[in-house]
Design a protein around this nucleic acid. Structure first.
Length: 319
DNA sequence: AATTATGAATGCTTTACCTCA
DNA sequence: GGTGAGGTAAAGCATTCATAA
């Protein structure tokens, strides 16, 4: 399948996602992601993403931001919707969910160790699931799997469920709104989808995990680029230092040189003006720049411009 | 046959809540 | 009554497996 390729390509094209934050700081990479410091129940990856996008560099066109968002979304969201050969079976395997199953072996773990930890076995969900099963979840049509429900053991062969297109779509839509569900939402959604609450829960867990994975890939790509740009910048600066040293060694040349060039930026519109330190004429165009903007800092405030290693913010490939 | 996508299982951590000394 | 320790449940995450496509 080429889907992964597409995903990677998108990632490659869309790296800048989180990067946003590095603007103006070329010495240390920006935080890639807001760190979690809240109870896990409150995690809302979506909102983090939104924050990230809000922080994207202003220089980045909106379409680019959207493309990035779409790229990530596409890489994870669209597949279930447009993947070929969608199997419409929706039946939770009866091997997994015997109609009269009302105890903890719902998950049909081969070693039946789901009770081992007490905390990891999600008792309530099993209870919920039982409720869902009672509510008729098991009545969903099953296009396959009828041959393994008689498998006696049943637990050994777990038949893989494929969600229907409609189910996937609704799950995706819900995930876009909130990437975690409270029990009530879970139940409601499960009922709507004709699935067990546990299945909805698992789907959301997987979705979060895989979204995170994609984000990690994007972050890695960004860091890679960031590093490359730093290296490039370093090389450039070293070359510049070398040139200056050379000039210093030949004072005659040095004397005929123009004074060092500095860059100044209009604080409001952030347009850059090149000026010579001793040339009043050349500095004149900073106020000229500022004449077009409402600069709250006043026209005389100029700040030096740092060379930005932000990969998408400035042309790196300088001559 | 190999690969990819994805549903599911398992074990662990974190957090909230309760009980008790 | 306030407080810290210990236990428990619930929820989420990371990892892994299994299987459909």
């Amino acid at each position: 399948m080429g889907e992964k390729d597409i995903g990677n390509e998108d990632v490659g094209l869309s790296l800048s996602l989180s990067l946003s934050l590095g603007r103006g700081c070329s010495s240390s990479p920006p935080p890639l992601k807001p760190q979690r410091s809240v109870p896990m129940n409150n995690i809302n990856e979506k909102s983090s993403w939104n924050e990230l996008f809000q922080l994207l560099p202003q220089a980045m066109p909106l379409t680019e931001k959207l493309n990035m968002q779409n790229a990530v979304d596409r890489s994870t969201d669209m597949r279930p919707l447009f993947g070929g050969g969608i199997n419409m079976n929706s039946m939770p395997s009866t091997a997994e969910t015997p109609p009269d199953c009302n105890q903890d072996n719902r998950d049909s773990s081969p070693n039946n160790s789901s009770l081992s930890s007490g905390s990891g076995c999600k008792r309530s969900e099993r209870e919920e699931d039982n409720g869902a099963a009672v509510a008729g979840i098991e009545l969903a049509s099953c296009s396959r799997g009828s041959d393994d429900e008689d498998g006696g053991g049943g637990e050994a062969a777990r038949k893989k469920l494929r969600l229907t297109k409609e189910q996937s779509m609704l799950l995706e839509e819900t995930f876009k709104q909130h990437n975690t569900l409270n029990p009530k939402q879970k139940q409601t959604l499960a009922k709507e989808l004709n699935l067990r609450a546990r299945q909805v829960e698992v789907w959301f867990q997987n979705r979060r995990a895989r979204t995170k994975l994609k984000q990690t890939e994007v972050d890695c790509e960004y860091l890679k680029r960031y590093c490359e740009n730093l290296s490039e910048e370093n090389r450039r600066l070293q070359k510049e230092v070398q040139e200056l040293r050379t000039l210093k060694l030949s004072p005659q040349l040095y004397m005929h040189m123009n004074p060092p060039t500095t860059l100044t930026m209009c604080p409001s519109c952030e347009r850059v003006a090149v000026s010579s330190a001793s040339s009043s004429a050349s500095t004149a165009h900073v106020p000229a720049l500022q004449s077009n903007c409402n600069n709250s800092l006043g026209p005389n405030i100029q700040r030096p411009v740092r060379v930005n290693t932000w990969p998408f913010d400035s042309p790196i490939s300088r001559p």
